[in-house]
Amino acid sequence: MGHGGDVIAELTADHREVDDLFAEIEKAPAGSDERKKLADRLTIELVRHSVAEEEHLYPAVREHLPQGDAIADKELTDHSKVEQLLKQLEHRDADAHDFDKIVAELRFEVTSHVHDEETNLFVKLRQTCSAERMEELGDKIRSAKKAAPTRPHPGAPNTPPLNKLLAPGTGFVDRVRDHVTGRGK
Results as ranks from 00 to 15, higher is better:
residue 135 E to N: 09
residue 113 H to G: 06
residue 117 E to K: 00
residue 146 K to F: 13
residue 137 L to S: 09
residue 118 E to C: 05
residue 146 K to N: 13
residue 140 K to V: 08
residue 129 C to L: 14
residue 141 I to N: 00
residue 146 K to V: 09
residue 137 L to A: 04
residue 137 L to H: 03
residue 153 H to Q: 05
residue 131 A to T: 08
residue 115 H to D: 14
residue 154 P to E: 04
residue 151 R to A: 12
residue 113 H to V: 00
residue 148 A to I: 06
residue 143 S to F: 06
residue 161 P to N: 12
residue 144 A to E: 11
residue 126 R to I: 03
residue 128 T to K: 13
residue 116 D to I: 01
residue 159 T to E: 15
residue 134 M to A: 15
residue 154 P to D: 02
residue 154 P to Q: 00
residue 150 T to V: 10
residue 162 L to F: 15
residue 159 T to Q: 11
residue 136 E to S: 14
residue 118 E to K: 06
residue 128 T to E: 13
residue 147 A to G: 03
residue 156 A to E: 03
residue 160 P to L: 15
residue 117 E to V: 03
residue 137 L to G: 06
residue 115 H to S: 11
residue 133 R to S: 09
residue 117 E to D: 09
residue 133 R to V: 12
residue 129 C to G: 08
residue 114 V to M: 04
residue 149 P to S: 13
residue 154 P to W: 02
residue 122 F to L: 00
residue 159 T to A: 14
residue 141 I to E: 08
residue 159 T to H: 11
residue 158 N to H: 07
residue 139 D to M: 11
residue 113 H to C: 04
residue 138 G to Y: 13
residue 138 G to C: 11
residue 161 P to Y: 05
residue 138 G to H: 12
residue 129 C to T: 15
residue 144 A to T: 10
residue 153 H to M: 05
residue 149 P to R: 15
residue 140 K to H: 07
